[in-house]
Write a protein that binds this DNA or RNA. Structure first.
Lengths: 359, 359
DNA sequence: CTGAAAGCGCTAACAT
DNA sequence: ATGTTAGCGCTTTCAG
C-alpha cells in the first residue's frame, strides 16, 4: 500500500520544509516543537510531514541537544528475578518520563562492568544506574561520578563513592533474622552467596560487596551479642552456577558438624539449594531449616512455605530511576534518600535446631 | 586525581589531531580503525588520545555510518520469567557481536507496542526483535518489514507478515498434552491466558494471538479426534493481574461442573492459579490436576512437582538475536528457520480425573 | 599515505 | 515570526 517501498533515503526536515514551502529552520521548529511558529506554518509543515511520513532522526537531535533520552542500566544478571523486578521498576518509571533504557548484563564480571559503563557513556546515555559488581574496584564509577554525569547505584554501595545509592538497610535485617535463627536454637548457620572471591572465606576475609559484607556484619553482631562464636566455615562464596551451589549445599549438610540452617543470598541460589536439599532426601524444617533473601510468589507454594527476607525490589527500581531522572533534570537530591527496609516474613521453613549445639 | 574535573567540553578527534600534529581526517582514521594510516601516525594519534583520554562519540559515528550497533527488543513483560530468559538469550548473543539492546516493555498493550517500535526506529536501531501483542493488528510491523529494516518476531507470528519468526511448534505440543490429559480421563480441561479480549471466549471467538490460537487449535483437535466436545466455557482470557487470575481459578473450580484440570499459559499465571488452589484447600492432583507452559526451577519444588510444557526459551532468544544479526549484516536467511520443539515433562501434577465425565 | 572540504540531520544563534 | 548561517563530532569523498 505505501508508496515508497523502494529503499529510499529517509525523509528529512529539508524535504518537509521544501514540501511546505518554508525554511528548514521553520520546519524544524514546527516539527521539534520549539521556538516561535505561526499557526499557518505549523499546519502546513505538519501536513507535509504527515504526507511524506517524516520521522525525526533522534540521533541527529541528540547530537545537537546533548540529550539522548536514554539511560543505561548495568546489572549482574537480568535472569535473576531480583534484577528482573528491579529493572521493571526502572523501565516503568523511565518510560513515564519519556526515557528509554539500554540494559547491559555483566554476569557479575568486573571487567564486563567497566566495559559496559564505557560503552554506555560513548553512546551518550543521559545517566547510568549500576548495581556494582565490586564495592572496592570502583574507579570506573568514580570517574563517571566526577565527570558529573548522573549516576545512581542500586543495591550495593561502592566504597568512598558519594554517588546516590538506593539500597535496603541490610545490616539491620540481617541482624534481626540472625537473632531469630539463634533464638530458634541454631548455631550452625550457613550463608551462601554468588559473590566472587579468590579464596575461601575466613575470619579476616574482606568481602568485596557492600551488600554481602553488611549481611555478614549483621550476622557477626548477632552472634557476638549472644556471646557466641561465628561459624566462619559455613560462609560460602563463589556460588556460581546451579551445580556449584548444589555441591556446596551437600558439603554444608554432610560435614561432621553440619549446618542446621542455610541462608540463601538470593532467589536463584535458593532454588538450587532447595533442589539439593530435596535430592538429599532431607525435609524442611525437620532436618534442616531454610531462609532466603527476596520474596517471590513461588516461595509460598513449597511445602512448607518458605521464611524469607522480603525486599521492596520493584520500589527500589522505581526509586533509582526517579533519583536518576532528578539528577538528569538538574534538580538537587532531596536530602538523604530514605533507606528501604526489608522485612523478615515468618512462614514455615525455619524450625527449632535439630540438635542443640554447645551452650 | 584526574586533571580535568571541571565540566569541560568532551575531547574530540580535532583535539586529538591537534595534539598529535596530524589532520583531523588522519586522526579519525587511526581512531576509527579504517582507511590507510601509517604506523607512525597511528602511534602518535593513539598516544595523544590516551593522553587526553579521548572517547569517541558514538552518536556522531552512528549518524555518519547509519549503524547504531543497537537493537531494539519489545516484549510484553520482562518481569515474566519467560521473557526474562529470552531477553537474556538475546542480550548475551547481541553482546558477543558488539551490539547493545534497548529494552521496551509494553504490558501487552497494542498502543504501547506501536509507540515503542516507532521510538526505536527514530533512535535508529539497527534492527528489532518484537514479541507482538497482537497477531492481527500488525501494520506497524508490516511497515517496518517493508521498509527493509531487520525485524524478527519472537514467540508469536503476525498474520500475513513474512518476517522471520522464532517460535515453538505450539499446536503440536498442545495437541500432545491435551491427548495426555484426555487419556487420564479429563474432560473438563480449563485453559487460562493473559491474552486481552473484549468478550468472553466462545466457540466462534477468533483469538488475537498466534500463540494462543495455536494452543487452542491443538486442544480442539485432540478433543475432536476422540469424538469429544470441547468445553469452550473453560477457556478464560484476560487473566491480567494476580487477583483476576485467582478469581478466575475459583470460578473454574467451583462451578457446577467444575474443571478437573487447569492449564496455565505461562509461569506468572501458574503462580496465581496455584495460590488460588492452595487457598481453596484443594490438593493436586487428587482434587484437581495442573499443567503449565514453561519449566522453571521452582516447578520441581512444589508438592507434588509440576507437570510442565518445557520450551527452549533461552535458545529461542539466542536464535532470534542470531537471525536479526544475520539480517543486519545483510546475509540471507538460511532457508526456513528450524521450528523449536516444546516437551511435555511428566511430573506429579496431572493425575486421573477425579470423576469421569460422560463418555 | 595524507589532508581539505563536504556532508549526516538536526538545533541554535543571529539577523531580519 | 521567519530565514540564514553555523555548527554538533564524526566519516567520507576527492585531490594530492
Amino acid at each position: 500500500m505505501s508508496s515508497n517501498n523502494s529503499r529510499r533515503r529517509d525523509v528529512t526536515v529539508a524535504d518537509v520544509a521544501k514540501a511546505a514551502n518554508v525554511s528548514k529552520a521553520q520546519a524544524a521548529r514546527a516539527l521539534g516543537n520549539y521556538g516561535a511558529v505561526s499557526d499557518d506554518v505549523r499546519e502546513r509543515v505538519l501536513a507535509a510531514a504527515e504526507e511524506l511520513s517524516y520521522r525525526p532522526n533522534e540521533l541527529a537531535r541528540s547530537m545537537n541537544t546533548g540529550k539522548s533520552h536514554t539511560i543505561g542500566v548495568v546489572v549482574g544478571d537480568i535472569e535473576n528475578p531480583h534484577f528482573g523486578l528491579a529493572t521493571r521498576g526502572i523501565t516503568d518509571t523511565a518510560k513515564k518520563s519519556g526515557y528509554n533504557v539500554i540494559l547491559v548484563n555483566t554476569d557479575e564480571e568486573q571487567a564486563a562492568e567497566v566495559d559496559a559503563v564505557q560503552i554506555l557513556l560513548d553512546k551518550r546515555v543521559d545517566g547510568l544506574i549500576v548495581a556494582p559488581a565490586s564495592s572496592t574496584e570502583t574507579e570506573h564509577l568514580q570517574s563517571v561520578y566526577e565527570s558529573g554525569r548522573p549516576l545512581v547505584l542500586l543495591d550495593r554501595a561502592a566504597n568512598g563513592l558519594a554517588a546516590e545509592t538506593v539500597a535496603v538497610n541490610t545490616a539491620g535485617i540481617s541482624y534481626e533474622s540472625t537473632v531469630h535463627l539463634l533464638d530458634s536454637g541454631h548455631r550452625r548457620i550457613a550463608f551462601i552467596s554468588t559473590l566472587k572471591s579468590d579464596s575461601p572465606f575466613k575470619a579476616e576475609t574482606q568481602v568485596d560487596s557492600s551488600q554481602i559484607s553488611e549481611r555478614l556484619d549483621g550476622m557477626f553482631r548477632a552472634f557476638s551479642d549472644k556471646g557466641l562464636a561465628f561459624p566462619h566455615d559455613l560462609v560460602r562464596l563463589n556460588a556460581g552456577d546451579a551445580d556449584s551451589i548444589q555441591k556446596i549445599t551437600r558439603e554444608l549438610l554432610r560435614m561432621p558438624d553440619p549446618a542446621t540452617v542455610v541462608v540463601a543470598s538470593d532467589g536463584l541460589i535458593a532454588l538450587s539449594v532447595l533442589g539439593a536439599i530435596q535430592d538429599l532426601g532431607l525435609s524442611i524444617p525437620e532436618d534442616v531449616s531454610f531462609l532466603m533473601y527476596d520474596d517471590f510468589a513461588w516461595t509460598r507454594l513449597t511445602t512448607p512455605p518458605l521464611t524469607v527476607i522480603a525486599q521492596p525490589v520493584y520500589e527500589m527500581g522505581v526509586a533509582a530511576a526517579n533519583a536518576l531522572l532528578r539528577q538528569i533534570q538538574g534538580r538537587k537530591a532531596s536530602g538523604t534518600a530514605p533507606a528501604f527496609e526489608a522485612r523478615l516474613i515468618h512462614r514455615g521453613s525455619v524450625g527449632p535446631a535439630k540438635v542443640l549445639s554447645n551452650s
